[in-house]
């Protein structure tokens, strides 16, 4: 049982370190890195389940009888592309945020927004 599932457990640890970075860190770029790691680990999970002991890459040849499962590979190809698309969009947001707020730390940004809201509320009272 240990050997049979060990691979999956490592993947879980990887996923969770990615997720931890996303939630715990305040730096916007680091959050995106965490997101990438989280996603990549999910890809590893999919690919792991496609593997068959003694199988080979799913490219048909005459002298091979056992192939690994091609379907997860296809799904993950798609998911990788989705991942890079998200990262690119996220990074472009970071660039714009840096230009607009002058920083890329979650706390500072929230601070600025709160200040502004407080200001507009104060105006309203006055």
């Amino acid at each position: 049982m240990l050997m049979g599932l060990l691979n999956y457990w490592i993947v879980v640890v990887l996923m969770m370190s990615g997720l931890y970075i996303v939630i715990a860190h305040g730096n916007l770029i680091k959050k995106l890195v965490g997101l990438t790691i989280f996603q990549t680990s999910v890809f590893i999970f999919y690919i792991s389940m496609a593997k068959i002991e003694g199988g080979s890459a799913p490219i048909l040849a005459d002298d091979i009888t056992v192939y690994s499962n091609p379907l997860p590979h296809v799904l993950i190809l798609t998911a990788i592309v989705v991942g890079i698309a998200t990262t690119a969009l996220g990074l472009s947001l970071v660039v714009r945020i840096k230009e607009a707020y002058g920083c890329i730390e979650e706390e500072e940004i929230q601070q600025q927004d709160n200040d502004q809201q407080a200001e507009s509320k104060a105006e309203e009272v006055a």
């Binding site: 996923m15 989280f38 999910v42 998200t86 947001l93």
Partner: peptide, 23 residues
């Protein structure tokens, strides 16, 4: 400019959500 920050937050939450669905 708050739109940018709102969109970023949505992106992070949305992607976590989508990845959960993927899992």
């Amino acid at each position: 400019k708050q739109a940018l920050w709102a969109s970023y937050q949505y992106l992070i939450m949305g992607t976590i959500g989508a990845t959960f669905i993927l899992i």
